[in-house]
Design a protein around this nucleic acid. Structure first.
Length: 358
DNA sequence: AATACGTGGGC
DNA sequence: TGCCCAAGTAT
């Protein structure tokens, strides 16, 4: 058993830290659209969008989303295409579906009344340990630390916490530490102040160490080791997967395929993709006919047309094949006009392929 | 516990 | 370029 050590603060230090942090926050907090009030619906929408997504990216999406679905009731009854129209391009699309499921839970299971504790909030779809604590603290004043990437980094640096934040059990270590430090009188502001601190002075790269408002509490900043924190083991690089991507021309546009209901880019319309396997496809025409009941002709593999798209865990290397449609008998496929391509709900990958057509 | 799940930006 | 990151959750 290795003893994990980190800096421990006295009660007095904790009190001075809260005061310093919140004073700084009161004077310097970012003016963000979801900070105009503490309406739980607003906090909920922003927190879901902010999962693994940067503030600058979220701002426009948030404004459009609130305009399209002003209340939890609007979201609960929204048609899927309208929901996806607002979310397209943001990524992690299950967030949008879970978010609507959560809205329906609020409306039907909770009669429109938001639960006020992290424990209850975590029962909602798409709301986990971080988001439940964020909503509970910001909207309802519950004293719960919201441990996100910022909190990991800020407290790891302040206290020189050596635990690997890539390991799930480390979350409870940080939770227990921050639970003692969080200001019981202003838990929501405390959590948000830590996030603002983590995105400015104590950012991942190029931190502003000595100018930090809490430099006097910053152990790793003072001894020049702050870039060693937080400790985090590296993830595996994305697996490279070669595909053929088919641009199948129709009289007025292209043939598209509806992706499976589960998995990556679920339900999106996309140009048909076929994994390249060890056994080379002998003929694109025969492949489409026997596998999809889709008849094509003039299939031409282009060495110039390649699209590389990197997800978190996969990199798709797509070699494009141009062909002409003859006929098809498969409900998973649909003819789309060139004009429709411009306003359909599409993934960033499909939009990347669209650009090649122009 | 480990992996699936998107995207855009920075260096 | 390739790698890492950015307010995580579900399974």
């Amino acid at each position: 058993m290795i003893a994990i050590s980190y800096i421990e603060w006295s009660d007095d230090t904790i009190k001075r830290f809260r005061k310093k942090l919140l004073t700084w926050y009161d004077e310097n907090k970012r003016d963000l659209p979801w900070r105009k009030d503490t309406n739980p619906y607003h906090v909920f929408i922003s927190e879901i969008m902010l999962q693994q997504t940067q503030v600058n990216t979220v701002i426009d999406y948030y404004l459009k989303f609130i305009e399209a679905f002003p209340t939890v009731f609007d979201l609960a009854q929204a048609p899927e295409d309208k929901l996806m129209a607002v979310w397209q391009g943001l990524g992690y699309y299950s967030r949008a579906r879970n978010m609507q499921a959560a809205a329906q839970q609020i409306v039907f299971d909770y009669k429109g009344q938001w639960p006020k504790t992290a424990k209850e909030l975590e029962k909602l779809k798409g709301i986990g340990p971080y988001t439940s604590c964020a909503i509970a603290s910001i909207s309802f004043g519950e004293v719960e630390p919201a441990i996100d990437g910022n909190a990991f980094r800020v407290f790891a640096r302040l206290l020189k916490i050596e635990d690997d934040i890539a390991k799930p059990k480390t979350k409870t270590i940080f939770y227990d530490i921050v639970k003692k430090i969080i200001d019981p009188n202003r838990p929501g502001d405390f959590n948000q102040a830590i996030m603002d601190l983590g995105s400015s002075y104590m950012r991942a790269k190029n931190p502003l160490i000595e100018q930090s408002p809490v430099y006097e509490f910053d152990a790793s900043g003072q001894d020049g080791t702050c870039l060693n924190y937080p400790v985090k083991t590296k993830k595996k690089p994305p697996q490279k997967i070669p595909y053929y991507g088919f641009i199948i021309k129709t009289s007025e546009g292209y043939l598209m395929e509806k992706r499976p209901k589960t998995g990556i880019l679920a339900n999106f319309l996309m140009f048909p993709l076929v994994k390249k396997t060890l056994t080379e496809i002998e003929s694109f025409e025969n492949y489409f006919k026997s596998n999809y009941a889709v008849e094509i002709k003039n299939a031409q593999l282009s060495d110039d047309l390649k699209v590389i798209h990197t997800f978190t865990h996969q990199q798709w290397q797509i070699s494009l094949v141009v062909a002409d449609l003859v006929a098809f008998d498969n409900s998973n496929f649909i003819e789309v006009t060139s004009e429709e391509l411009d306003y359909l709900n599409l993934s960033a990958l499909q939009k990347k392929m669209n650009k090649i057509l122009a």
